[in-house]
Design a binder for these strands. Structure first.
Lengths: 211, 211
DNA sequence: GAAAAAACTTGAACAGCCTCATCTTTTAAG
DNA sequence: CTTAAAAGATGAGGCTGTTCAAGTTTTTTC
């Protein structure tokens, strides 16, 4: 059995994270004070800082759990993607988008993305960047799978297209969380329009009828 | 002649902005205190806040001047773009990238981008978003120009491609400013690889040799 | 040109993130 | 079991962005 100290530490860290997750969602990241989290987790302010370096780190820790789920939810699509290139890409992207607001508010996303950009060299900044990389890798992997099934032209470099598409879907998502009145449906429409021409390039069924 | 009060106000605002621009660049955004700016601009702390709502607003104001130049520098390329689609797109993008570090450090960019994402509904957040929109519009406009010159297939929707490409170039730029050791040359290489396949789609010279 | 009004400046005080010297609890040693 | 050492919790205080009541300067009024 693990030592008493070890168990207490794990319990405290869990309580702090649970408090953060609950309060950030219900009251908003900005307006929650470290003191509030400490009180809810039944520890002192100083103790919170023994487990997390900054308030932003706590946010990233809550967001990371969600992103982990999003990555896991994407995996099945790689196993058995739709037979049309655009459908396959959009299936994966919609999976990302639809999961994104399950446990996180737009305000939390804004704060998390901002934090990861402003503090890229902190542990939490690196953690966020690493998850971004895995998402981009998943898009790339999907393209490779489609190439394996002869649905995407072989001479295209999967990583380049994967990066391009991830950049676009990420940018669209940022615009989505920046504006509270944009719906998930609008976000889908937005990215679908951008994906369409690229998908047709990838599948090689481009009507070469210019003049 | 403008009244005394009006002239004094303009002079104070200018001094604050000049102080910010100089100090942010030399000492870094984070480590500059409002008090430092107030001292350098020979006003009080309270006065700084009569001209700018937050520290982030001051940063955006300095960044906005730079972005304005970037947009202006892009215009000539629309007038007379290179005859190859990829060259044309990259000419515009490289123009953006090369100008970006002339007066701003990577740290300033990080803070500015983070601010614009976290506070999209403040005047400065809107201001930044508006400039982003104009940059994306410039990319779209270049595509339209190329369509006018029969270099890009007519059936492609310029705004969709413009948005896609802007998303990718913006994302690449964010990665660039996040990592201090990435060079402008590496950034160029990165975006060129992503643009290549899209440019070939756009120009319609896609080898349709799948199978 | 004096007085009143309007506009603006000022800096002390406040708020919230974070630190660190001190105290408490757990573990290890004898 | 007692004591020493190690690990960790604590919260008052420091730091910096921001506010606002009081004071100052400019403009307007008569």
């Amino acid at each position: 059995m693990a030592g008493l100290r070890e168990r207490q530490k794990a319990a405290r860290e869990r309580r702090i994270l649970e408090a953060a997750s609950a309060k950030f969602r219900s009251h908003g990241y900005r307006s929650v004070k470290i003191e509030d989290l400490a009180e809810m987790a039944e520890v002192s302010v100083g103790t919170v800082y023994n487990y997390y370096e900054t308030k932003g780190d706590i946010l990233i820790a809550t967001v990371a759990m969600e992103v982990e789920e999003v990555i896991a939810a994407g995996a099945p699509i790689l196993e058995n993607p739709p037979q049309r290139v655009d459908d396959a890409l959009l299936a994966l992207i919609y999976q990302y988008y639809d999961h994104s607001l399950e446990y996180l508010s737009k305000e939390m996303w804004r704060a998390a993305i901002a934090h990861s950009i402003e503090h890229p060299n902190t542990p939490s900044g690196r953690r966020y960047a690493e998850q971004d990389r895995r998402l981009a890798a998943q898009v790339t992997e999907l393209i490779r799978v489609l190439q394996g099934r002869k649905l995407v032209r072989q001479n295209l470099v999967a990583t380049d297209l994967g990066t391009l598409i991830f950049g676009a879907l990420n940018q669209a998502f940022i615009e989505f969380v920046k504006q509270d009145d944009i719906t998930l449906a609008q976000l889908r429409t937005q990215i679908a329009a951008q994906i369409a021409p690229v998908a047709s390039l990838m599948s090689g069924d481009v009507p070469v009828t210019n003049q």
